[in-house]
């Protein structure tokens, strides 16, 4: 477990390979059969992305740890529903993690709360923070390069929804654009990202 000096680098290199964890798929299939040793190996492949993503969405360290644990146990519990022919294991795991973290964020904020926040300055600040610190910390060169091919509004829409857990309507409030526009830009941005990364 000791990784030596603390490193912000994710453990999975992906230069030139669209699927960062080539054997995560096989491991997850094994996990579905109740193989705890396979789960332990899979854990090493997925825990950093899961924790990092959950933390980015929830912010609070203790809560992020709790939700990360819930997600990993859910991976074990529902591995039986994973269909390898329908996509990569990392995507499956991160989809689950994102959904759960976003649900937690929304459950904790009443609608009124959120609306007040979206309309306020703290909302605008939240976006600055995203564009500076999050984008600044995207250390994977490929992702950074691909994100830079998006238009400003596409990038904002993707970052505010994916990393901050906002609905597209809330994101529209934040960037001051019509919801229909943000909805479209969000999809266009993800399509551009997909094509640039060569996934799907």
């Amino acid at each position: 477990m000791d990784d030596g000096p603390q490193s912000a680098e994710p453990p999975l290199g992906w230069a030139g390979q669209p699927q960062p964890a080539p054997d995560a798929r096989a491991l997850l299939v094994e996990v579905a059969k109740g193989n705890e040793a396979a789960f332990e190996q899979l854990y090493e492949l997925i825990v950093r992305p899961v924790f990092g993503l959950v933390r980015r969405l929830l912010r609070d360290a203790a809560q992020s740890e709790e939700v990360t644990q819930e997600v990993l146990v859910e991976v074990w519990r529902t591995a039986t529903h994973y269909r390898p022919e329908k996509g990569g294991a990392m995507t499956w795991v991160l989809t689950l993690a994102h959904r759960r973290a976003v649900d937690r964020v929304r459950a904790e904020q009443s609608a009124a709360d959120r609306e007040a926040k979206v309309g306020s300055r703290s909302g605008a600040r939240a976006f600055d923070e995203v564009s500076e610190s999050v984008l600044g910390r995207l250390e994977q060169r490929q992702v950074r390069r691909c994100m830079s091919t998006l238009t400003e509004l596409q990038r904002e829409s993707v970052l505010l929804t994916y990393y901050r857990g906002y609905t597209y309507r809330e994101a529209a409030e934040l960037v001051g654009s019509p919801t229909a526009t943000v909805k479209t830009r969000l999809r266009d941005g993800l399509i551009r990202l997909r094509d640039c990364l060569g996934v799907g």
């Binding site: 950093r48 924790f51 990092g52 990392m90 995207l138 990393y163 799907g200």
Partner: peptide
């Protein structure tokens, strides 16, 4: 949806962070 999730997942991987050791 599957393809766009795959792309978004890359953003998730890019956010990787070391969790507390006792979590495992």
């Amino acid at each position: 949806v599957r393809e766009l999730r795959e792309a978004a997942g890359m953003l998730g991987v890019a956010a990787a962070e070391e969790p507390p050791a006792e979590l495992k």
